[in-house]
Amino acid sequence: MEMALTVSQVARLAKISIRALHHYDELGLLCPSDRSEAGYRLYSQADLQKLQQVLFFKELGFPLEDIRRILGDPTFDLRTALRMQRQLLTERAARLDALVHAVDAALDALEKGTHVDKEAMFEAFGDFDPSKYEEEAKQRWGNTEAYKESARRTARYKKEDWKRIKEEGDVLFQALADLLAAGTSAASAAAMDLAEAHRQYLGRWFYACPPAMHRGLGEMYVADTRFTENIDKARPGLSLFLRDAFAANAERQGAADVPCG
């Protein structure tokens, strides 16, 4: 018979605090399956599996409220979630590995009194140019609050910030492209969860993006051929898939229709 674990045992096992487990319970994020006769929380194997998902999503930067909603969705699929998490973590690991090698090269050069090759110094950061469409964006959206907020934030970003922004965006788009390749519906929980992750990504790095605005962004991906061509390089039809996933996610959150700016 499966033995239930107490909150202190789970805290030691997962290397998190008892307070965190209590907080997850209060949020309805992770409620223990049972209680002892004395009223103490008891966690089952299924509870531990759910906790693992909470910690995976948390490590990837998902807010607790979004994690609660994702795990509470009746269409949530553990296998799909694990595959998505593995891809996101693999991409992060590759980035960190490149940065470790860059640091090692810099230390080695410092100790030997030599210089790292100028191009090699920044190889780990890639060649992403955030200013490529800056002037056009200013003309098109310069008077909007979203543009002003984005301009305030991005003015402080360094090359490593832009490298991280590009990598996070690439991972999300690739995960969506993989769903498209697998024949997954754009209205599936997996696609909507990734659409929500993309919306949160915009909010973290650029501007607050309500669901209705995010749906409008998806429409623009299809309406503007330059966006369509660039996005569809990852997989033909991806721009349409993004539009539909963004729209489905907005509808799931009860967003009202708004015109695309």
Rank of each mutant, 00 (worst) to 15 (best):
K132Y: 13
G218E: 07
F56S: 08
E251N: 11
K163P: 01
K112D: 14
S150Q: 14
E111N: 09
L240H: 14
W141C: 09
A4N: 11
R235P: 07
Q52Y: 08
E145M: 12
A208P: 06
R41M: 09
L5G: 01
A94P: 06
T144S: 15
R164S: 13
D193R: 05
K138P: 00
L55R: 15
F62Q: 13
S17A: 07
A181E: 10
L180F: 04
D104I: 00
L89W: 05
H23W: 06
R199G: 02
A250P: 12
D108P: 03
N230P: 00
L176D: 01
L60T: 10
G203W: 02
L55Q: 15
T154Q: 14
V10C: 10
A195G: 08
R226L: 09
D117P: 04
E65I: 03
E134N: 05
A102K: 08
A46V: 09
P130Q: 11
M213Y: 05
Q253M: 13
F206Q: 05
E167T: 01
A195W: 02
E219I: 01
F62M: 15
H198D: 09
I231E: 13
D161G: 05
L21D: 09
L71I: 01
Y133I: 03
Q85M: 10
L180T: 00
E251V: 02
E135W: 08
A105H: 02
A146D: 14
A98H: 12
D47V: 02
R12Y: 00
E219Q: 14
A250I: 04
D257Q: 14
D170F: 01
P236G: 09
P259K: 14
R215Y: 00
L99A: 10
K159I: 09
G203L: 03
E26W: 03
I18M: 11
L242E: 11
Q139Y: 08
L13S: 12
P236C: 06
A120G: 04
E119Q: 14
L42F: 04
I18P: 00
E219D: 09
L60Y: 11
S131T: 11
I67P: 10
R83Q: 13
F56Y: 14
A11Q: 10
W162G: 03
L180M: 05
E26R: 15
V100L: 13
L194D: 05
V54N: 12
V116T: 08
A212Q: 13
A190Y: 02
A182V: 01
E251F: 01
S8L: 04
A195L: 03
L194K: 04
P211S: 04
R215K: 12
E37M: 11
D232L: 07
M220D: 06
F241P: 06
H23I: 01
K15D: 15
L99E: 12
D178I: 01
G218P: 06
A187N: 08
Q9D: 12
L64T: 03
Y24T: 05
A187R: 10
R35L: 11
S239A: 15
G142D: 14
L27I: 07
D104S: 13
R83S: 11
A109I: 02
Q45D: 15
K15A: 14
A124G: 14
D178Y: 01
D97M: 11
Y147V: 01
R83C: 05
L180V: 04
T154C: 10
Q85S: 12
L89N: 13
F76I: 05
A93S: 12
A197M: 07
L194V: 03
T80P: 00
F128Y: 15
D127I: 00
L42C: 08
T80Y: 03
A186L: 09
